[in-house]
C-alpha cells in the first residue's frame, strides 16, 4: 500500500517538473515582447532594459529556467506582468472561485447523471432509456458556450428568475474569507443571506459546466449497471425473492460503483479545465478567466502559474481517487 502511494506521488513530482518545463518552453515561443507590451510603446530603452533585468529576462534561457525552478520550489511563481502582483497571490484569489464552480458542477453531474443512468439501465430499451440516451448524446455534443449564453439569456435577462454574471450581487458583501468558497464561508459564519445569494449565482454556471460531464457519467453509470445486472449473482438474488430495490441497492449498484468513482475523479479534472469557457461567459473570477486574460496580454508568468496549479490538481485528484480505489478494491494495487 505504502509503496503504491509513494510510486504514484513520485510520478506526480515528475509530471510537475515536466509541466513546468513545457510552460517555460511555451513562454519562450511568444514572438511578441511581453516587457514592451507591459510598459507600453512610450517606454524608454533603459526602462525596458531595467525591467528586463528585474524579471531576469537578460539571462540565458537555461539560467532563467533554473532560477524559475528554484523559486517555484519555494512557492514563488514569479510576478504577473499585467497585475504586477505575485502570481501565487493572484492564484490564491482566483482559485477558490474555480474550485467552488467545479464542485457545484460536479454536484449537478452526480445529482443528474447517476440516477438517470440507473433508471435507464433498469428500464433498458424503453422510452426512459431512450430519453436518457438522447440527453447524453445532446449533452456530449452541445457547445457549452452556447448553452451558457442561452441559460443566461432565458433565466436572467428574460425571466429574471436567477441572477446574472458574477459570484454575488453587487449589493452583497462577500463573507469573511476562510476557505474562499463563498457558500462554505457563508455557512461557517452563519450568513444565510450571502449563502442564498452565492448559491443562486452558482446555479446557471454549474449547469452549463456540468452538462458535458453529466452526459459522460450518465453513459458510464448506465453501462456499468447493465453489466452488473447481467451477472449470475443478480439472478440468484432475484430468484431467492429479494425485492428489486434491495437487489439494485445492495448488489448491483455497489458493484457498479468502482468505474463510476474513477470516472468522477477524471471528470473533476476535466471540469477544472473546461471552466475556461464557462467562466468567460458568466464573468466568473476564477483561474480560467485569469488564464484567458493572461494569454491575451501575453502575461506568461501568470499563464505558467495557472498551468502549473491546474496540472498539479488534476493528477493529484486522480492519484487520490486511485488510492481511495485501492483501499476499496485491493486488486488494483498489483497493476
Amino acid at each position: 500500500m505504502t509503496t503504491f502511494i509513494i510510486r504514484r506521488l513520485g510520478g506526480l513530482v515528475f509530471v510537475i517538473f515536466g509541466v513546468s518545463l513545457l510552460t517555460f518552453f511555451l513562454a519562450q515561443l511568444v514572438p511578441a515582447d511581453p516587457v514592451a507590451a507591459a510598459l507600453g510603446s512610450n517606454a524608454r530603452n533603459e526602462q525596458v532594459e531595467a525591467y528586463r533585468q528585474q524579471l531576469g529576462l537578460d539571462q540565458p534561457v537555461v539560467t532563467q529556467y533554473a532560477i524559475y525552478m528554484g523559486r517555484m520550489l519555494q512557492g514563488d511563481l514569479g510576478a504577473s506582468i499585467r497585475t504586477r502582483r505575485a502570481v501565487a497571490d493572484d492564484l490564491r484569489d482566483y482559485l477558490p472561485a474555480t474550485i467552488e464552480l467545479t464542485l457545484a458542477a460536479l454536484f449537478v453531474t452526480i445529482l443528474i447523471g447517476i440516477p438517470l443512468g440507473i433508471l435507464a439501465a433498469l428500464n433498458r430499451n424503453t422510452w426512459i432509456d431512450g430519453g436518457a440516451r438522447i440527453l447524453a448524446l445532446i449533452g456530449g455534443a452541445m457547445p457549452i458556450f452556447y448553452v451558457g449564453l442561452v441559460l443566461l439569456g432565458v433565466f436572467y435577462r428574460q425571466l429574471q428568475w436567477l441572477p446574472g454574471p458574477g459570484r454575488l450581487d453587487s449589493t452583497v458583501q462577500p463573507p469573511t474569507n476562510i476557505t474562499g468558497l463563498y457558500t462554505v464561508d457563508a455557512l461557517l459564519t452563519g450568513n444565510w443571506l450571502v449563502f442564498g445569494n452565492a448559491v443562486s449565482h452558482l446555479i446557471l454556471p454549474a449547469i452549463t459546466l456540468g452538462l458535458f460531464s453529466t452526459a459522460v457519467l450518465l453513459r458510464m453509470t448506465r453501462s456499468s449497471m447493465l453489466e452488473m445486472l447481467g451477472q449470475d449473482y443478480v439472478r440468484t438474488a432475484k430468484a431467492k425473492g429479494l425485492a428489486q430495490r434491495l437487489v439494485v441497492g445492495r448488489h448491483v449498484f455497489k458493484n457498479a460503483l468502482p468505474p463510476i468513482l474513477t470516472i468522477i475523479g477524471i471528470l473533476f479534472g476535466s471540469l477544472l479545465s473546461g471552466a475556461v469557457l464557462t467562466e468567460t461567459i458568466f464573468n466568473w473570477p476564477g483561474i480560467g478567466r485569469y488564464a484567458t486574460t493572461s494569454v491575451t496580454t501575453l502575461d506568461y508568468p501568470a499563464v505558467m502559474g495557472v498551468a502549473l496549479v491546474a496540472a498539479v490538481i488534476y493528477p493529484l485528484v486522480n492519484t487520490l481517487v486511485d488510492i481511495g480505489y485501492s483501499v476499496i478494491d485491493p486488486r488494483v494495487r498489483t497493476h
Binding site: 510520478g11 515528475f14 509530471v15 515536466g18 509541466v19 513545457l22 510552460t23 511555451l26 513562454a27 515561443l29 511568444v30 514572438p31 479534472g269 476535466s270 477544472l272 479545465s273 473546461g274 475556461v276 469557457l277 480560467g288 488564464a291 484567458t292 494569454v295 491575451t296 501575453l298 506568461y300 499563464v303 495557472v306 498551468a307 491546474a310 496540472a311 498539479v312 488534476y314 493528477p315
Partner: peptide, 24 residues
C-alpha cells in the same frame, strides 16, 4: 509515456489557449 503523462496532466483547453496565444 512519461511525456504523454505530462500532456495528460495539463488542462487541455488552457494548454491549447496558451499555445494559440503564444503563436498568435
Amino acid at each position: 509515456m512519461r511525456v504523454t503523462d505530462i500532456f495528460f496532466a495539463f488542462p487541455s483547453l488552457i494548454l491549447a489557449m496558451a499555445i494559440a496565444g503564444a503563436l498568435g
